[in-house]
Amino acid sequence: MREMVKMIIVLTILSTFSGTLLAALHNKTKDRIEYQQLKFVKGPAIREILKGSSNDPIIDRFKIKDGDMEKSFFIGVFDGEANSVVFETFGTGFQGQIGLMVGVNIKDDKIVAVGVTTHSETPGVGSLAKTDPIFVSQFKGLPIDQVFKVKADGGQIDAMSGATLTSRGVTTAATDGSKMYKRLKLQITENLKSLNK
């Protein structure tokens, strides 16, 4: 009986101590880890879209609540004025989710550029969406306020050969981004205004 109590006490104390320690460490490093993730996972795509901006878009970011989700927006400053935002949307590709960074100029509501962040598409076929700039460059300069489709579905985007499903995934992600932008436009402009002051 005494032995059993001792076992329980030792295990409980050990677990409590370990849990507290880890929770404390997690709290301390949370922001830093978030920054690192943004920098190394999403950072390359964001910087590519906001090429030539005079700020670090990963530091200058804000969050807006969209339903239950909190969305991060990354700001691009051009000619001393914060006029572009980049945000991430998702679409279903050939295998799972495709993450797409969409950059929008809020002055004329046109797409600055888009870039694929995360995907699990076939290497060498669907993965070209991320590595080959020709496909995503088709989005450049298009008005954000529309439904994006591949040409086979009566849309405006040339699908990559052999990767129609991936191309469709990217266009649905872009369409989703368009809807979200419309929903949150007011709050986005508010946020940028306060930054420009």
């Binding site: 050990l14 370990s18 320690l21 880890l22 460490l25 997690h26 490093t29 830093r32 880890i33 690192q36």
Partner: peptide, 17 residues
Amino acid sequence: IIIIATFVTIVEILMQA
């Protein structure tokens, strides 16, 4: 295992940060 797992998690968090 509790002791080891705690230290491994610490390493993982530190490596991420």
